[in-house]
Amino acid sequence: MLLIKLFFTFLGIGAVAFGGGYAMLPLFERMIVEQHGWLDRSLFLDMIAISQMTPGPIAINSATFIGFQIQGVIGALVATIGMITIPVILISLVSVYREPFKNSKVVQAIFTGLRPALVGLIFASVFSLARDAVFDLWGLILFFVFFGLLAVFRIHPILVILISAVLGLIIYA
């Protein structure tokens, strides 16, 4: 029963996961953390850090991690397969009927709405997740430091995560 629920949850995420990577985190957060309570917010954030620091697509890493957490190896497999089922069907179709899709005015029009919506979605998940990550003055200071390192100095995300782990140890241990 749980496996079926897991499969359909990830099927739903995969079906509307436009924009890749971080753009699909809001969906993950609402469905996995809030609706089903399969992960708490802290573990969800840990999972994102691990997904970023290990090779491979972040969405696959996340699906594997969440599935494993719920139902072991079989859960990991079911979540990952659920996630890619609809996209892979669409890709197979488009690989055959490619020309009408490629320059499709309809697709372009839909994306004029989707692209900015993804911005709002990403900030909505920041808003929701920050409560369990930035809970003191140190958190707030670190947030601005890390944002500066990433956005202004363009330091590699993996390096920033490593720095944050060291600072976490110094401040909180």
Binding site: G19, G21, Y22, A23, L25, S42, L45, D46, I48, A49, Q52, R115, L118, V119, I122, F123, S125, V126, L129, A130, D132, A133, V134, G139, L142, F143, F146, F147, L149, L150, A151, P157, V160, I161, I163, S164, A165, V166, L167, G168, L169, I171, Y172, A173
Partner: peptide
Amino acid sequence: AAFKGVRVSVIALIFTAGFRL
């Protein structure tokens, strides 16, 4: 303790992704 620091950097990562978009 390490993950407490890491969680803040993840928030910054997601925020940066939103900011770039």
